[in-house]
Amino acid sequence: MFEARITQGAVLKKLVEALKELVTEGNFDVSSTGLQLQAMDSSHVCLVSLALREDGFEHFRCDRNMAMGIHFQNLSKILKCAGNEDTITLKAEDNADQLTLMFESSNQDRISDFDLKLMSIESEHLGIPDQEYSAEIKMPSSEYQRIVRDLTSIGDTVLISATKEGIKFSTSGDVGTANVTLRHNTTPEKPEEQTIIDLKEPVALTFALRYLNNFAKATPLAPVVKLSLTKDLPIVVEYQIGELGAVKFYLAPKIDD
């Protein structure tokens, strides 16, 4: 059987809210090492990779590997019934066709359980190579959210260029043009307020803002976001979820004809 208990149920709620617009359905692949999800958006332009470690949960048991097919809008409906302070336990029998979610209030005086019907999803797993990136930028996730939201109101695509001067986001549209540059800035005392640019070589790539804006739905999960860029490769937008794991969004670039 599979059983995973998380005291901070709000994390699970935020996670599903972050994913549900981008991916309709996907498999929760559970094994003794944790829970993983890899899913593409409907247009196969971006990929979400979620990995939650077994030791990040208060309790984790998985007797045999399983792929649990989840419809994210439906999971979201159920998780909306959990309180923000609730502990959430996920449970499934081996080869089950449903996932049980149990919500316990912090003072244990309210317990509820919901069964989510599982789906059979044929999903292809893509191999994501480990690699060095030309530029890695860590910045406050709220800053990333603001930049992509602001630029989405001006244009459809963004040119992201990383140089020793900083990281620049540029767009243009009917109303005009916009440029936002962030400089390397380690002055703030709190690491989560710093902008750290690790540049091996200058790089410039163009991406669809619609997706970058969608990734920012993960902002409530983490104070810091990391962007990784290499010429002619997908950008990685990564949120560390405390000690529990990470969600990474990969977006294929726009390529000049």
């Binding site: 971006c46 292809e124 893509l126 997908p234 294929a252 390529i255 000049d256």
Partner: peptide, 14 residues
């Protein structure tokens, strides 16, 4: 103009 690439063009099937 620029063409939107598919993600599978970069990451092969496992």
């Amino acid at each position: 103009g620029a063409t939107q690439a598919k993600i599978s063009a970069f990451f092969g099937n496992k």
